[in-house]
Design a protein around this nucleic acid. Structure first.
Lengths: 331, 331
DNA sequence: GCACGGGCATGCAACGTTGCAAACTGGGGG
DNA sequence: CCCCCAGTTTGCAACGTTGCATGCCCGTGC
């Protein structure tokens, strides 16, 4: 390992001067800078991050905690976050909870606290009240709503309104038996609840009765669950002619279930998803969906952390990112 | 921030003893351990990773460098790697190159070298010879083959054989005009070349002539390119009746192109992909594909790094993971 | 000619931890 | 009764870096 002192000896300057060159300190004479830089290059010096972090009290790392990195929505979000964070000089560490409450809890309460400067947390099963009782001092920002507005910064989209728009679109298309897939029994996850609320509101606006047998719960947001739920809906006495799914993954599973039942989309059943994942754009038929502004979500989350790290101690706020309904072939 | 010394004062022992408790050192009296642990819990002590890393000379971090985290293949691989690495006490940092040669180069030559203990690198555009000239001492393991067998550890699958099996399957299905999509002009990426080789071999075995107008190059491995390439193939004078795509993403794009052309899969054109991403399992029709054993890939890569960090300095080797052809509806 | 100031270079100390080796304890054997 | 040893605890130093404060040098202005 090459240290600053090695470079200093090689260049015939002090350790401090080498450090000044490495850190682009202003007051370094051009020829000194050039000489030191030459030594750095020749010796192949790399700053020791551990030492730098220790001295600076910052690591330059952020944790992005998601239920699963291999779900399209989160991998897309992760990719954007990594890119945007990099532009601001941060490196992102991705943590996967698999929805495991124990793991979420550990990460929430500071498992990474001395390793990262801040945490972007997408909770799955940890209840809101527990978020509030967090004692760790590392700045954190939550993705997604949580009931009871815990005193933690949030980045959200307007899920109620988005769901309302999606279902309103189905109504406008003349659908009369509109089901929802994606209801979550877990209280912790308010996102599903908000979307259900929007769904019901749109039905109410259209003068339709919400029917609990058309609000299908799921165990996960994966395709398989969408497939299963849709199959059950189609097997019911009064099958729906449209379905609003709380994720594109569910929608793609549902799409497949419609095909498996010998029906056509959108002729027999219209399908709308949520998330705007790439698969939906290439599905047959192309999936109508709600597209959250992920870049804005990532940017807002990073901005919150940046502000908090800069000493901003105003009360926690909720930051709302945009969304839009993208109508394609499936509805 | 709570330090070891704070805990030491609180528990009435030396700093070193607290450290011994934190690190599960054997020779600590049970009652001492209990008392120290109580202080740790009460004060909410968290080890300072920067200091620990500096002292130990290890960070416990690994970098996983992939072209893009939001492509299904890599996000799936990343998810598995993170899980398996965690079991071994490692934390994985995911780096995204976007296929940018400059960024690949930086990461290859040690941009992260003082931050991570090892690197799992999935190169995209950096040529093999440059891999060989790597001077950085951080252990590295490459995913995917590279011509010229540079002196770096590799984890691969037998791409030639896998491609041969895939195309052989199309031959067995009675297809006579079999195209390939995914040829890469870049010399660096030998994977595409290997798959093309397997494709040609299978054709030769079946007594068919390889035709360069049925070997479609692509600019990326995304759906859009698969769509474009397939559209062009279908527009040719003698359109193929089957296509082997070098990735599932390409295959899904191709699938869509067939539908857009008013044709049916597999009746008019059979489609086979490569990677076994989840979307393929739910596509309409379900995609036939080559499924690499990703868990084995991740495990092999981690094992290589573990061995190298333990001081193994035997010559670099090539480690081959398994694969299998999964026949579904698209062929 | 001298004082001053801005640009530049440096020495010292400290960040929080762990490796090392030494020091202490109590119990059993000589 | 003393010594030895295993078990336990401790002090010291060092990991490589950067903040702070200081000192040096040279050019400018009086």
């Amino acid at each position: 390992m090459v240290r600053l002192s090695d470079v200093a000896v090689h260049a015939g300057v002090s350790v401090r001067t080498v450090s000044n060159v490495v850190n682009d300190f202003r007051h370094v004479a051009p020829h000194t800078r050039a000489r030191v830089q030459a030594s750095i290059d020749e010796l192949g010096y790399r700053p020791n991050m551990a030492a730098r972090n220790l001295r600076r009290g910052r690591t330059g790392l952020l944790a992005l905690v998601v239920p699963e990195i291999d779900s399209p929505y989160f991998s897309d979000l992760a990719a954007r976050t990594v890119r945007i964070a990099e532009d601001e000089g941060w490196t992102v560490l991705i943590d996967q909870t698999d929805g495991d409450p124990a793991r979420e809890r550990r990460l929430l309460h500071g498992e990474r606290s001395q390793l990262v400067d801040g945490v972007i947390f997408s909770p799955w099963s940890v209840p809101a009240q527990e978020l509030a009782s967090r004692s760790d001092a590392t700045p954190i920002v939550l993705l997604g709503e949580h009931d009871g507005a815990p005193p933690v910064d949030h980045v959200v989209i307007d899920n109620v309104r988005a769901a309302e728009e999606a279902v309103g679109h189905l109504v406008a298309r003349g659908r009369t038996a509109i089901a929802a897939i994606g209801v979550r029994p877990t209280l912790g996850n308010a996102t599903a609840h908000q979307r259900l609320l929007g769904h019901r509101r749109a039905l109410a606006t259209a003068g339709m009765e919400p029917r609990s047998d058309r609000e299908a719960p799921v165990g996960s947001l994966h395709r398989a669950e969408g497939h299963r739920a849709m199959t059950e809906l189609l097997d019911s006495l009064e099958p729906p002619d449209a379905v609003f799914c709380f994720s594109d993954q569910l929608a793609l599973g549902a799409l497949r279930a419609v095909v498996d039942a010998g029906l056509r989309v959108p002729r027999d059943v219209a399908v709308v998803g949520f998330d705007d994942i790439e698969d939906g754009r290439y599905a047959v038929p192309r999936l109508t969906t709600v597209s959250p502004d992920r870049d804005q979500i990532a940017r807002l989350a990073l901005q919150v952390l940046r502000d908090r790290l800069a000493g901003d101690d105003t009360p926690a706020r909720v930051h709302t990112a945009g969304h839009r309904l993208v109508v394609r072939e499936s509805s």
